[in-house]
């Protein structure tokens, strides 16, 4: 789509786009270019010179069992975060949609966690499950379950998943609720007249009608789990125990800033760049075709 009516001149528009060009150039294109460039080199241990290795960093990464483990960890983590944030959100949205009165109040209350930063959410959940003072871990102890996410891989993963999914329940709830409200009443009433019970109606009519929203949320939640959960992981587990909760973004940080392995970190950035690119294409192609709000 283009405007038919435009203004003349080229100096003014160039001046108008200049701030954005400048900022994107300095803080986006140059660093992104650097990441690609650095990924082709291995710096010497003193950082004085570096040696060109072509795709060596990538070959090394893909054969590195820790990096491959991190891929698997990320896959498990993002699948779980997506499920744990979408299923309760859908359930709450369906419940709220059944109410004629009061749904707005519940919505106002359920929005809260969305505003809580992932890093703060991490601190809240860490507090509840802290091995020494945590309330939940204490009660679990009373029930005979010895909670220790500092040592146990599975428990660490469970905790970062729940802490990451928590704020997203709000987000998913908003979208599901909006979608449910726009399902035509006549369709549901017709099914009700035919004798379909609530859950039958839900699975045969409502859920299929929600599929555009569901797919959209699947993509954005995976993107969220990949890139925006750093704060949760850093506050709760710092990627541990061992590497059990080291997702890809965390590994870029850990190798680049903690381990000072710049070539590897840059190569990881490039791999992530490809992943984001692919996810964005999926999102855009899909959004253009199907989502109607």
């Amino acid at each position: 789509m283009e405007k038919r009516v435009t203004f003349k001149g080229w100096l003014l528009p160039l001046a108008l786009v200049f701030p954005q060009i400048l900022i994107s150039g300095v803080f986006f294109f140059y660093p992104a270019g650097q990441a690609i460039w650095q990924s082709l080199f291995i710096p010497d241990p003193f950082g004085l010179s570096s040696q060109f290795v072509g795709l060596g960093n990538f070959e090394y990464l893909l054969s590195d069992k820790y990096y491959r483990a991190s891929f698997l960890t990320t896959a498990i983590f993002s699948t779980l975060v997506t499920l744990v944030s979408m299923v309760p959100a859908l359930f709450l949205a369906v419940m709220a949609d059944r109410l004629v009165k009061g749904a707005g109040t519940y919505r106002t209350l359920l929005i809260w966690p969305y505003a809580v930063a992932p890093a703060v959410a991490g601190v809240l959940w860490l507090f509840m499950f802290n091995t020494r003072v945590g309330v939940v871990s204490w009660y679990l102890g009373q029930l005979g379950y010895d909670w220790n996410h500092v040592l146990n891989d599975g428990e660490a993963m469970g905790l970062v998943v729940v802490a990451s999914a928590w704020g997203r329940i709000s987000y998913n709830f908003l979208f599901f609720f909006a979608a449910l409200q726009s399902v035509p009443r006549s369709v549901i009433e017709a099914a009700a007249i035919d004798g379909a019970r609530f859950w039958t109606r839900f699975f045969t009519i409502v859920l299929p009608l929600l599929s555009p929203t569901t797919f959209f949320l699947l993509v954005v939640n995976v993107v969220y789990a990949f890139f925006e959960t750093f704060g949760v992981i850093h506050t709760i587990t710092s990627g541990g125990p061992q590497q059990a909760t080291t997702i890809l973004v965390y590994k870029v940080f850990a190798d680049g800033f903690v381990g000072q392995d710049l070539g590897s970190s840059a190569a990881q950035s490039v791999i992530l760049l490809v992943v984001v690119g692919a996810l964005t294409v999926v999102q855009f192609r899909y959004v253009e075709k199907k989502v109607h709000y």
């Binding site: 660093p31 992104a32 650097q34 990441a35 940080f253 950035s269 760049l273 964005t280």
Partner: peptide, 18 residues
Amino acid sequence: ITLMLPVEVRIVPTYEVV
């Protein structure tokens, strides 16, 4: 293109620029 890259992905070079 800038839509696609969160800051998390290019942290090391961006840090160096800053």
